[in-house]
Amino acid sequence: MKSLVVYSSRTGNTLKVAQTIYDALPEPKEIFPAKEAPDPSGYDFLALGFWVDKGTVNSETAQYMETVTGKKIGVFGTLGAYPDSDHARQCLQKARQLVKDNEILGEFLCQGKVDPDLVKMMETKMKDDPHHSMTPERKARLEEAAKHPDEKDLADARALFSELARIAMGKSLPDAPDNQ
């Protein structure tokens, strides 16, 4: 089985998760930024990574995702919002739509640092916009996001994608022994 990790990263968060996933996959494997990624047809399992931009998959990864069909895939991403929020669920739903012609084996989202230029824009140019202004709640969420991906996030991504690769190869974890 040959695996491919494709990602796009604006602040380094998604790259960090992508590298962790790549390290967890068995050989043979390759990793590429979305803009340089090869045709997906020569791969059995793809890990497709994005950063959330305006509530959806960033454009570079979205364009690549649209070229992938008939593959076993795992999707991963980073965002400034909490990964268990409605916003995060909506972002994953949009990602699923982009790869709907594939077998999605699993998904992973974690928080990540938001581009400092965007934070500055929220504090200045968007200060009167009720959806994007810098509220105390938003500031606290962005401060928390800046601590991610942390070691737990990376360990979770590593464990999930290691298992997804096993599933893609037709192997699953051994059953637990019977307690008799």
Rank of each mutant, 00 (worst) to 15 (best):
G12Q: 13
T14K: 10
L15M: 04
V17R: 10
A18P: 14
Q19D: 14
T20H: 02
T20V: 09
I21N: 03
Y22N: 11
Y22M: 08
Y22L: 10
E27I: 04
K29L: 05
E30P: 02
F32D: 01
P33F: 01
P33R: 14
K35I: 03
P38K: 11
D39T: 12
D39P: 00
Y43P: 06
Y43W: 11
Y43H: 11
D44R: 07
L46R: 06
L46E: 11
A47K: 08
A47F: 04
W51A: 09
V52L: 05
D53I: 00
D53W: 14
D53T: 06
K54P: 01
V57M: 11
V57S: 10
N58V: 01
S59R: 14
Q63G: 05
Y64G: 12
M65W: 01
E66H: 07
E66S: 14
V68Y: 13
G70P: 07
G70S: 12
G70K: 07
G70T: 13
K71N: 08
K71S: 13
K72C: 10
G74Q: 03
G74S: 12
G77V: 05
G77T: 10
T78E: 04
L79V: 02
L79W: 03
L79A: 07
L79G: 15
G80H: 07
G80M: 02
A81R: 12
Y82T: 08
Y82M: 06
D86W: 01
H87A: 15
H87E: 12
A88L: 10
R89G: 13
Q90N: 13
Q90R: 13
L92T: 06
Q93G: 01
Q93M: 03
K94N: 15
L98V: 00
V99S: 12
D101H: 14
N102Y: 02
N102S: 05
E103D: 15
E103K: 11
E103Y: 03
I104G: 03
I104Q: 05
F108G: 01
L109I: 12
L109G: 04
L109E: 00
L109P: 03
V114L: 15
D117V: 00
L118G: 04
L118W: 05
L118H: 04
T124V: 02
M126N: 02
D128I: 00
D128P: 01
P130Q: 01
H131R: 02
H132L: 13
